[in-house]
Write a protein that binds this DNA or RNA. Structure first.
Length: 414
RNA sequence: GGAGACGUGGCCGAGUGGUCGAAGGCGGUUGACUCGAAAUCAACUGAGCGGCUUGCCGUUCCUAGAGUUCGAAUCUCUACGUCUCCGCCA
């Protein structure tokens, strides 16, 4: 959520942002709702001041043994008026809040303008795709032949887009999780967290998945609980509705969790293999910091994710998401894309974003500056560190041998 | 799941329906003292919103929501949470 006053005082910038994001919205709606809101507040507060004064006089009159009933009758009528105005105000504010909650974040100046993923500039490339003396196979062929992935059993137990990992497949998934968590906690200074895998609606509103993207989420029946689509949700909300001391910042969290996504808009895409599942494992990194440091923190966060790929010796490149491709809550996002030899192209394996104060404002996450200044909203960042299932794919495909076996990355050898 | 108790500021903890944003303490900041933020003393110390003469005025907030009342931290109802006992249980 953006600050209404900021939006109204940066109309041109905001209109350009909406256009570049392909988001259609008329800002005049906000301006007129805000005007109405202020008008009602003026009226209601004046009435309340008079009521409070009147009530004080009733108390004084009763203490003095005088008859206060005419005065009480006046105040009662005032009370009815106040109630009507308060109801009206609540409706206006609800409408206003609803618009603000579905408006995307502003964009960083360093986020390029572009239409779609084809306009994302490559920032840097690491490693070179390996040369194969044979035609590299897709991971599903290799893994099924080795008996480490069972796609049919996934469908039998659940649905399409669910997979069973078995034997050394399950073990490598576990090894990758442990490897990533150890790296981020021991080397990069993150605090390991194990959060609930289900959260209530307000938590998802805090990070921006609700109210707009409910169709992407799994909801628990008869409960106000949803399965988390990413650990970003519980981790970022850990500090919601608090005012931190600046000395407590930055805060670094990391967590392994399964992630649950409906993939509602992805019909027909990546239908084979482990690439796009309704349930997948991810190690996530979250940072809470001051506005002054958030873009430096984004660079560090991204390099923390890159280090996972470097240690696994998987070729990748980094792209800067353009305005037409970037997520709803992000001001700037770097995607890490890993090389998949069977597809002969780079595929997304991590997404690192600076949300600035967009999420913090939604969840009431603030800090008190060390210089004693006014309380401010913190900045929040999140990044995959990294998607575990896709890493398993990348290892299988990049480390495959002609005989159908897979070499083990040096970093994973105990 | 059953029975009972309870939910007050960063923390602890008072609070009889009226002058309570809320005593007192702890913590924090500043000043005095000092070689020294060790001790002592003093002052200050919540957030949101609206207004304008930008420092003040007004308003809201005592878990949340609804109600009673001229007036609610205080009374009623509901939800959520915490604690104790019983039951069940990885």
């Amino acid at each position: 959520m953006l600050d209404l006053r900021w939006i109204l005082s940066h109309r041109e910038e905001m209109e350009a942002c909406l256009k570049n994001r392909h988001h259609d919205f008329d800002l005049n709606i906000l301006a007129s709702l805000d005007e109405e809101r202020r008008k009602i507040i003026g009226q209601t507060e004046e009435l309340k001041a008079r009521r409070n004064e009147g009530s004080r006089r009733v108390g004084a009159a009763k203490k003095a043994g005088e008859d206060a009933s005419p005065l009480m009758e006046d105040i009662r009528r005032m009370g009815d008026e106040i109630k009507a105005l308060d109801d009206k105000l609540a409706k206006v504010e609800e409408t206003l809040h609803g618009h603000l909650m579905t408006l995307p974040n502003r964009l960083s100046e360093t986020t390029p303008v572009g239409n779609d993923e084809n306009d994302n500039p490559v920032v840097r490339t690491w490693g070179t795709p390996g040369e194969f003396s044979f035609e590299p196979k897709p991971h599903w062929d290799i893994a099924e032949a080795l008996g480490i992935m069972d796609f049919e059993k996934g469908v039998m137990l659940a649905q399409s887009r669910f997979t069973v990992l078995k034997g050394l497949g399950a073990r490598m998934e576990r090894a990758l999780i442990a490897f990533m968590l150890d790296l981020h906690t021991k080397k990069h200074g993150y605090t390991e967290v194990e959060p609930p895998f289900m959260v209530r609606s307000a938590i998802l509103e805090g990070t921006g998945q609700l109210p707009k993207f409910a169709e992407d989420l799994y909801k628990i029946e008869n409960e106000d609980l949803w399965l988390i689509p990413t650990a970003e949700v519980p981790l970022t909300n850990l500090q919601r509705e608090t005012i931190l001391d600046e000395s407590a910042l930055p805060i670094y969290y990391t967590a392994y969790t399964p992630c649950f996504r409906r993939e509602a808009g992805s019909a027909g895409r990546d239908v084979r293999g482990l690439m796009r599942q309704h349930q997948f494992d991810k190690v996530e990194m979250v940072k809470i910091c001051t506005p002054e440091t958030s873009y430096d923190e984004l660079e560090k966060l991204t390099s923390n994710a890159e280090e996972v790929l470097q240690l696994l010796e998987l070729p990748y490149h980094v792209v800067n998401l353009c305005s037409g491709d970037i997520g709803f809550g992000s001001a700037k996002t770097y995607d890490l894309e890993v090389w998949l030899p069977s597809q002969k192209r780079y595929r997304e394996i991590s997404s690192c974003s600076n949300c600035e104060d967009f999420q913090a404002r939604r969840m009431g996450l603030r800090y008190r500056p060390a210089d004693g200044g006014k309380v401010r909203f913190a900045h929040t960042l999140n990044g995959s560190g990294i998607a575990v299932g896709r890493t398993l794919i990348a290892v299988i495909e990049n480390y495959q041998r002609e005989d159908g076996s897979i070499a083990i990355p040096r970093a994973l050898v105990p």
